[in-house]
Structure formats: structure tokens, C-alpha cells
Design a binder for these strands. Structure first.
Length: 792
DNA sequence: AGCACGCCGACT
DNA sequence: GTCGGCGTGCTC
């Protein structure tokens, strides 16, 4: 018997299966999906068993050294999925496996010295070994030098210890080891030991901690262990991040007609175990979540599991609470706030079948359920479902694959579906379910678009239009709450010389430097370059060099200047980077500790506070003007999303959108809450521009320090693509990227637009292989983004 | 990737 | 003569 193994080496050259002999003693234990340690050249590394072959190999093989775990980390589905991803996403198998598994199982390598002949070593060096082994990282350079002669003589050998990042947490416990209780009790003298044994006999097993709390000291327990009546064992302990929280049991709510229709349709697919994809298009507050909860309940009743994906940012305590309240301990929650160990424990709860529901962000789409009955992707249109760095994947694609594998329905839910999904629903590929009414029957908020050009003409040069300023004052007086939205991440301010127009740029990248007030420095967000803020213009020496572009931090200052009685909570990358900060700030706002919540996109979701009656969008244009074909869609989604924050309770909500482009269709349709209108108009532009959903896109970005090199290679790439693709496809470019140089690397891109190209993956795989060698030799790098979310 | 091998230059 | 620089090639 031999095994096909993926080795833990992240390199293209070894991105294949290696065959290893299975040693006699492992033949019965070894299963597919297990992690093993194998010799690899002169090294010793971790690997995953992909396949076991029950035949003799024609060549002599090296042998698997040992196994890393008793239960396989991967199941057959994930192995199959990883192969599919490797082929369709042009990614290395090991890189795919790495993102599918919790980081805790990733191999960790330590070089160790092993003392082979303890009697032959000097007395000074002997103490540094414990059990004849010492780790290299605990030794000083001098120690290592002193060991060298012994290594030469074979008294000490070098070895590698392969461990995982994080261990399974265990607690000490004892289990009962007697078959006849009465006989055992008769032989005991101590009453304490007798009652202790009886208790454990009843329970089968108890932790030492629990016994201590019952008044049985370790002396009592150890006495029984010595008599072989109890056996010490280690049991797994779960780090449950929510163990200190109590959740109020929540029960089903009655569904209204639209919800009921949607529920019935999904229910049927669940019962029939068909892989049907539903697009649940429901406006904010229409009760999508209740539909999710009830369909999940049905899946659980059938003895199956359910997976629910939400954007990271929407994974708020309120959301988690709702699931915990309905399904209790059956829920595993996975988000970025968990420690590596907590994440691993949640993962294992799912794998062992203890958790039947998983609520989590993007990477949870790989949750190791083996009997999935339903997959839900909430806020289906969110860009965060696409992993933007290698290996690039879209959670929606993975969910659809898994839905097909498990023969289970997939629900894509959104108030503003992506054009791709809605178009598929129109074509009948997905089944459209619509929720048009707010569950609580509250009126949709009124939306007011303010033309900032008029404000400027009227002499108002501040951030706040007349309408918005008076509305803010009004709400402050009434004691109501306000959400202000500034679509500028962090505080991307730059410097501008008012005399000569000079903007300080990064010396390594073609982008302006960002001003950071906290450190009074100019920073480049792409390469990390930093410099002190100049006092005068580096170009003309003028003193009129000013900060331009307003960030959240600046707006906070302005609010305090303009509005009496304002109390602001600011939420952006700077104030929420600390663990739990996001939650804390929202809690403060909920408790009315502030009347204005000011933030970036992160506040567009998940807040559901009754006292918010005004939502202001300070500048709707920043996103609209990005050079990307999805900018209108993103703007429409965001404005709709933000507007949904107002007037959810008995007070009427009001939304004010400030813009320099009031007539833009994305803003107008958002104002009128008209998804379908927006969809139709945007689709017509996509058709003319040959963009998704009419065409699929591939974005190839390549870079090198020498521009000539980039231009030369880009011709080769372009020609290769033309040779492989049919005439109905378009190969655009090469053209410089929106940021043409990053870290002194010149960047160009080629965009492929196509409808159907059976040979495309082959061509891309060829390019990926070819340019991997080029990268090794020449530092020319190529990255391939299939179905890009952004073209920048 | 990471390790060994190998082939050149500048040191005791 | 040999220590060490990093180019090349291989890993079941």
C-alpha cells in the first residue's frame, strides 16, 4: 500500500502529489485526509493524505514517518473541493488546503538536537538536554558551536520536530475502571474513597476539577487510581468564546404571507434534497433572517446541518445572539475576533458533529460539515465574500459547489442583489423570492438628495449642507440619534500646495501620500513609505501647503465646532482595530452615550437601534467616481444599505444624501428605493460595456522593476491569450494599472472578456506555470484574478 | 520553499 | 590550502 500526499511546501514546483510507502503498523490506522510527517529530500515535513492506493508501487518509495492526528482533518468532500479549486482558481493545492483548514493545524517546524549517546557528552553540555532532546531556539550561538564536534561524531544528531500551531486543549479527568461496584466497595476502607468511587461509577467519568469542587482531594483520587479502580484520562476541553454568556431562548415568529411563500419554496427543496439556488431579494427589515432561522430549524429537524455566511462586519453580537437564542449550543460561530485556539475548537465542534449550525464570515464556507442540508449567504452582494489575495476565491462559488455536492439548497439573500445573481434569477438559473414589505409595517424613510454645488454657490463651503445642519440640530434637541456616514476609509487626506498645486507623492509608488495626524507623518498605504510632513511646499517653497480631503477624524472635530450638544462616537479603521472595540462602541451608542455615530462603510450594516431618526451621507461621490465598472452598483448598494438604518421603530426616519452629482442614476434610484429601476439601467450599461453579467472577466496583473521588461512580456502574454481564445472573446490591454507603480514595480494589466471559453483555464494554467519560472529567474510576477471584484 | 551540492574568490 | 559566497537543481 502507498499513499499520495500533498506536502506542506508552498511552491509551484512541488504542487503535485508525492507517493510514500505506508509502514506496516500504519496500514490499519491511516485514512484519507490525515496529516502525516514525511521525509522530503533532506527535510522532514507535514503532508496531507489525499489518496490511499492498495497496490504495490513500481518504484521504491520513502516511508511515511508518523501520523499527526487520529481523526483526519480533511474529509473526502474537502479533498475533492480542494482539487476543484486548484484547477479552476489556478492555485496551489497546499495553498487551497491552508485556507480551508483552521490556522491551528498548520505545520510548525523546530530544529532539535537529539543526544544519541548520553554517556559520551561533556558534563557541561549534558544539562541542557531534557529527555535527550533540546530545541535549537533555546540555545545560544556558543552552545550550538560547542555541540558541533559531537554532531560530527554522531553523539548528537540534528532532527526536525513537526508540530501544529495550536494544541487541542485538554483537562485531566478520571474514568471508572471497575466492573463490579460492590466488590470494589467491599475492598475499600475509607468512606471518602467509597463515596468518590460511587459517584464516578454513576457518572462514568469526572474531571479532577469537578471532584475537587465536590470535596474530593487529589489524595483521595490518587488512592483509587493506585488501586486501579480509576483511570486518569485527558479529555478535550472546548474554548467556547460565548461560555460566559446566557442567551434567552427564542422561538419561532409567525411568518407573513411573503415570508411564508419564500419559506414554503425553500422548505420543499430541503425536503426533496435538491440543489436549487434561491435568490431571496428582501428590502431591509423585511424579515429575511426569520426565514433563514425557520428553514435552518427544519434542516436540523431532518438531522442535517446548516451553514450561514454573513459579511464579517455584520457578524455583530446582535446577530450571534439571535442564532444562539434560537439554536443554543448547536451553533458554532466563526469570525476574525476569535483566537487561533477558539477558532480551532469551533471547527472541531463542527467536525465532530457537536455543532449543527455554523454562522461565520467568508472562510467559514469551508466548515467541515458532512451532512449539509442548507447553505445561506446573507448580503450576497458584499465584496468581502471575495478573498482578494492569493488564493483568490469567492465564497459564493464555493457555496454553490458544496450545495451541489450535498444536494442541498443554497439561499442568496440581499436587499440589493448583485447584478450577476439577479440576472441569473431572471434567466431562471436561480429561483427568485421577493420580500417587499417591512416586517414591522413601519414606513420606508424619506430620502432627500442635496446638491452640494448649490450649497457652494450659496456660499456654504462647510461639510454640512443647510438641510443637514438644521436636521442635526433638530435631532440633538429632541434627544434622538443620528448616523453620519463618510465614505472615506480611515482618513485618506493628502497635502496640496495652494500656490503651485503640488501634491507630495510616494517616491516608490504612483500615488499621493496620506497624511496621518496622530504621528504628523505622510504615509504610503501601498509600500509603507513614511516621511515627515513638510512645513513648506517641496516644489515651490510656499507655505500654503494644506491638508485636503476630509476624513472621519476631521469631521469629528468639525461636528464639535458646529453643533452644540453633539456627542460623537467615531467608528473607522483607527478606532475599531482593537479587539472587541467595534462591539463596545456600538454598545455605547445603543446606551445613548452619544447622539451621533460617525463612521465609514462599517456602520452601514448590522445596526438596528430604535432611536435613529436621521441618517446623513456626507459625500456620496467618493465611491461613485472610482474608475471601476462596479462603482455605480457599489454606490447604489451602499446608499440603500445606509438608508435602511433610519426609522426602524415608531419614529419616522429621514435620510439626507449630499452629493455633487444629484442627477446620477445610482443616487436617484437609491433615493426612490427602486432596485429594479437601477438594475435595468445598470444592465444596459453593462451590456454596452461588455461587462458582467453579460461577459465574464479575467484580470491579469503583471509587474517588474523594469518597465521595458513589463512591456516586452505583456506582448507575450497578450499573444498567448489570443492564440488560445476564440474570436468572440476580447483581450484588452496591456494598459498601465490605475496605480501604475507600487514599490518601484511597474504594473500593467490585461483584461479578458468572454462568454464561454473551454480552453481558457488551460491557457491561464500555462501562463501561470511559465511566469512562475520567470518569477524565479527574473522577478517578473503575474497574478491572475478570475471574476475580479475590482479592476484597479 | 529550503536544503545540498558545487564552483569560484579572499583569507589564515 | 580552506572558508564561505550564492547560482542550480531536486524533493516520492
Amino acid at each position: 500500500m502507498y499513499a499520495k500526499v500533498v506536502v506542506d511546501v508552498n511552491a509551484k514546483r512541488v504542487d503535485k502529489l508525492f507517493d510514500y510507502a505506508v509502514p506496516e503498523q500504519l496500514t490499519d490506522i491511516l485514512t484519507v485526509g490525515m496529516r502525516v510527517v514525511v521525509p522530503f529530500g533532506p527535510r522532514k515535513i507535514q503532508g496531507y493524505i489525499i489518496e490511499l492506493v492498495d497496490e504495490m508501487h513500481d518504484k521504491p518509495l520513502k516511508s511515511i514517518l508518523h501520523i499527526q492526528d487520529m481523526t483526519p482533518e480533511l474529509n473526502r468532500e474537502l479533498i475533492q473541493l480542494s482539487e476543484w479549486m486548484q484547477q479552476t482558481h489556478i492555485a496551489k493545492r497546499i495553498a487551497v488546503l491552508d485556507i480551508m483548514l483552521p490556522r491551528a493545524v498548520k505545520g510548525k517546524y523546530h530544529k532539535v538536537y537529539r543526544l544519541e549517546e548520553p554517556e559520551s557528552i561533556s558534563d557541561e553540555l549534558y544539562p541542557m538536554f531534557s529527555q535527550n532532546i533540546v530545541r535549537i531556539n533555546t540555545l545560544s550561538a556558543d552552545d550550538i558551536k560547542a555541540l558541533q564536534p559531537y554532531i560530527k561524531d554522531g553523539i548528537v544528531t540534528e532532527d526536525v520536530e513537526v508540530k501544529q500551531q495550536q494544541k487541542v486543549k485538554t483537562v485531566k479527568a478520571v474514568e471508572c475502571n471497575v466492573s463490579n461496584l460492590d466488590d470494589a466497595l467491599d475492598s475499600l476502607r475509607s468512606d471518602k474513597q467509597k463515596s468518590c468511587l460511587m459517584m464516578i461509577y454513576d457518572e462514568g467519568m469526572l474531571t479532577l476539577k469537578a471532584l475537587k469542587e465536590q470535596g474530593y482531594s487529589s489524595a483521595v483520587v490518587n488512592g483509587l487510581v493506585a488501586k486501579n479502580m480509576l483511570k486518569k484520562i485527558d479529555i478535550e476541553d472546548n474554548r467556547d468564546p460565548y461560555r460566559h454568556r446566557d442567551f434567552v431562548q427564542d422561538s419561532k415568529k409567525i411568518l407573513r404571507d411573503e415570508q411564508q411563500t419564500a419559506y414554503t419554496a425553500i422548505r420543499q427543496a430541503i425536503d426533496e434534497e435538491t440543489h436549487e439556488v434561491f435568490l431571496l431579494h428582501g428590502i431591509t427589515g423585511s424579515g429575511k433572517t426569520e426565514v433563514y432561522l425557520q428553514t435552518i430549524a427544519d434542516v436540523l429537524d431532518k438531522g442535517q446541518s446548516a451553514l450561514m455566511l454573513v459579511p464579517e462586519i455584520a457578524l455583530t453580537p446582535q446577530m450571534v445572539e439571535r442564532f444562539k437564542a434560537r439554536f443554543g449550543d448547536l451553533v458554532a460561530v466563526m469570525h476574525s475576533g476569535l483566537s487561533m485556539g477558539e477558532r480551532y475548537d469551533e471547527w472541531r465542534k463542527i467536525r465532530k458533529g457537536e455543532a449543527k449550525v455554523c454562522v461565520g464570515a467568508r472562510s467559514s464556507v469551508f466548515a467541515p460539515f458532512d451532512n449539509l442540508g442548507l447553505i445561506i449567504i446573507d448580503e450576497e452582494h458584499e465584496a468581502s465574500y471575495k478573498q482578494e489575495d492569493y488564493p483568490r476565491y469567492h465564497a459564493r462559488d464555493i457555496a454553490l459547489w458544496r450545495g451541489d455536492y450535498h444536494h442541498c439548497p443554497v439561499i442568496l439573500g440581499s436587499a440589493t442583489p448583485s447584478l450577476e445573481s439577479y440576472a441569473r434569477a431572471e434567466k431562471g438559473v436561480y429561483r427568485l423570492l421577493t420580500l417587499t414589505k417591512r416586517a414591522n409595517q413601519f414606513p420606508v424613510p424619506s430620502v432627500n438628495v442635496v446638491n452640494m454645488r448649490d450649497e457652494l454657490a450659496a456660499g456654504n463651503r462647510s461639510m454640512f449642507s443647510e438641510v443637514l445642519a438644521s436636521a442635526i440640530n433638530d435631532r440633538i434637541q429632541k434627544g434622538e440619534q443620528i448616523v453620519l456616514f463618510l465614505n472615506r476609509r480611515g482618513h485618506a487626506q493628502f497635502l496640496l500646495c495652494r500656490d503651485c498645486g503640488h501634491v507630495p507623492n510616494c517616491p516608490n509608488c504612483d500615488i499621493s501620500l496620506t497624511y496621518h495626524k496622530a504621528t504628523d507623518e505622510l504615509k504610503c498605504h501601498y509600500c509603507g513609505h513614511k516621511e515627515h510632513k513638510p512645513l513648506t511646499c517641496p516644489n515651490c517653497d510656499s507655505e500654503h501647503i494644506r491638508e485636503m480631503g476630509i476624513g472621519t477624524q476631521k469631521v469629528e472635530e468639525l461636528i464639535y465646532q458646529h453643533f452644540e450638544g453633539a456627542k460623537v462616537i467615531r467608528m473607522d479603521n483607527d478606532t475599531t482595530s482593537r479587539k472587541g472595540a467595534h462591539e463596545q462602541l456600538l454598545e455605547k451608542f445603543k446606551n445613548q452615550e452619544a447622539n451621533i455615530l460617525l463612521g465609514t462603510q462599517m456602520i452601514a450594516k448590522g445596526l438596528d437601534f430604535p432611536n435613529i431618526t436621521l441618517v446623513g451621507v456626507l459625500n456620496a461621490d467618493t465611491m461613485l467616481n472610482l474608475p471601476d465598472f462596479r462603482s455605480s452598483e457599489r454606490t447604489f448598494q451602499l446608499l440603500t444599505q445606509v438608508s435602511g438604518r433610519a426609522g426602524r421603530a415608531d419614529k419616522e426616519g429621514h435620510v439626507i444624501i449630499q452629493t455633487y452629482n444629484p442627477e446620477h442614476y445610482a443616487i436617484q434610484y437609491a433615493k426612490n428605493n427602486d432596485f429594479l429601476g437601477f438594475y435595468r439601467e445598470e444592465m444596459s450599461y453593462r451590456k454596452i460595456g461588455k461587462y458582467p453579467p453579460y461577459y465574464y472577466l479575467i484580470n491579469l496583473t503583471f509587474s517588474h522593476t523594469d518597465m521595458k521588461e513589463v512591456l516586452l512580456e505583456s506582448k507575450h502574454i497578450h499573444q498567448t491569450l489570443l492564440n488560445h481564445l476564440s474570436p468572440s472573446s476580447y483581450v484588452l490591454g496591456p494598459a498601465p494599472c490605475a496605480i501604475a507603480r507600487i514599490n518601484n514595480q511597474y504594473r500593467f494589466q490585461i483584461i479578458i472578456k468572454f462568454k464561454s471559453e473551454p480552453e481558457l483555464l488551460k491557457a491561464l494554467t500555462y501562463l501561470d506555470d511559465y511566469y512562475y519560472d520567470q518569477f524565479v529567474k527574473n522577478k517578473f510576477s503575474l497574478s491572475i484574478d478570475i471574476n475580479p471584484q475590482m479592476l484597479m
